[in-house]
Design a binder for these strands. Structure first.
Lengths: 205, 205
DNA sequence: GCAGAAGTCAATCATATGATTGAGTCATGA
DNA sequence: TCATGACTCAATCATATGATTGACTTCTGC
């Protein structure tokens, strides 16, 4: 549990950094970002603590490395940017589907973000990175909702930004629950969508 | 910054514990739950570290004390329990209004809960306390939504539990933003409410 | 094959941190 | 007034933890 057993082969900087980032992320998921210890990261990679410091100068740098890696992986899963020419309802579903699939297939991403958000007060760069990502994510929904209102698919009295905050807030709550907590994901989305759609005359039946 | 200046008067156990809880909560809000140090708590109260340990045996006990204090304060702000005899829309508004007011007048409560949730993995009792509170909070909304559907004020196809999760998720997102982040609170709630209400025939106009 | 760069390690430093010890101070009732 | 218990403190322990040092090993270009 404390250190590696035998000397490790020499690896290129980038390879080692990827191993270090992966180990750090795994430990963050297991014990929380606040409980992350550089020694534990080194041990999991199988290298000496000073080798770790050779590749990643400080603990702050290590956390930032994890945050950037996670953001990049998250961004790679996002659907294409909102497109005025396509049906907004489809785009909304695609957006939500992508988030759902990320929770199902890469639950470590949202969980890691949630963990990193916790240490934002003491790591301003991490906080800025997360805030930036969240803003962009919310902006995508805002745009899709605006498109849908213009297309007549969503309520005419829909306010895009507040509705987008409602959606991202509701979806974010599924992040820390892990893949097992997804049972109510689609029911919740169904409720959201019902609330957004313009309903033709004829009442709520 | 390190210790108290002069000997402190003798106080009764309960008084000291309250001072300790208040100081711990303040420090959690300032620097995060993960960065809480027993020494800092003692210094803020103006007592010696061993005096603190006399009143609160362990750090876990200290965190639990803060959690219980916060929950009690939160519960005291909740409106009356859901009542089938009263209009559901009024009860929903009252419930949301109470939460809004808590964010405006006692922002430390939600912020402290959000912080404590972060250390739940390493403090199971804290996690259980928060999960219990959250479940109860969500259950109130579920009940109100069910009442409203039965009363015909809300959509007939409304699913109470998913909708309640949507609401609590969306509202929870305002917790860590502090009182300054409340600007969009009512716009978001307006969107939520519009999505819940049964709309009479005549379309979305 | 060899010189410098890149990568690795054992040992150690300096400090932080939760907790304990033992002795002193104050309050209260008999 | 004095005995008991409640309360407080300085000093210290034991360990955890981020980081550094200096020497050794492997790789790369020539």
């Amino acid at each position: 549990m404390t250190g590696q057993t035998s000397p490790q082969p020499y690896l290129r900087q980038e390879t080692r950094r990827e191993m270090i980032a992966a180990a750090a992320q795994a430990l963050i998921l297991e014990k929380g970002a606040a409980a992350l210890r550089t020694r534990d990261v080194a041990a999991r990679v199988g290298i000496n603590i000073s080798t770790l410091h050779f590749h990643v100068a400080t603990k702050s740098g290590l956390l930032l490395l994890v945050a950037e890696t996670t953001r990049a992986a998250f961004c790679a899963l996002l659907p294409p940017a909102p497109d005025p020419a396509r049906p907004a309802r489809d785009q909304l579903r695609a957006e939500v589907q992508a988030y759902h699939d990320s929770l199902r297939d890469r639950p470590e991403l949202a969980a890691c973000f949630a963990q990193l958000a916790q240490i934002a007060p003491s790591e301003p760069e991490i906080g800025a990175l997360i805030a930036d990502f969240t803003r962009g994510w919310c902006a995508r929904y805002t745009e899709i909702l605006g498109l849908g209102r213009a297309q007549g698919v969503f309520r005419a009295d829909l306010a895009p930004l507040p509705a987008a905050l409602m959606i991202t807030g509701a979806l974010t709550a599924f992040g820390p629950r892990g893949p097992a907590g997804l049972a109510l994901f689609w029911p919740v989305f169904t409720e959201i969508e019902r609330g957004l759609l313009a309903r033709p005359e004829g009442g709520e039946r």
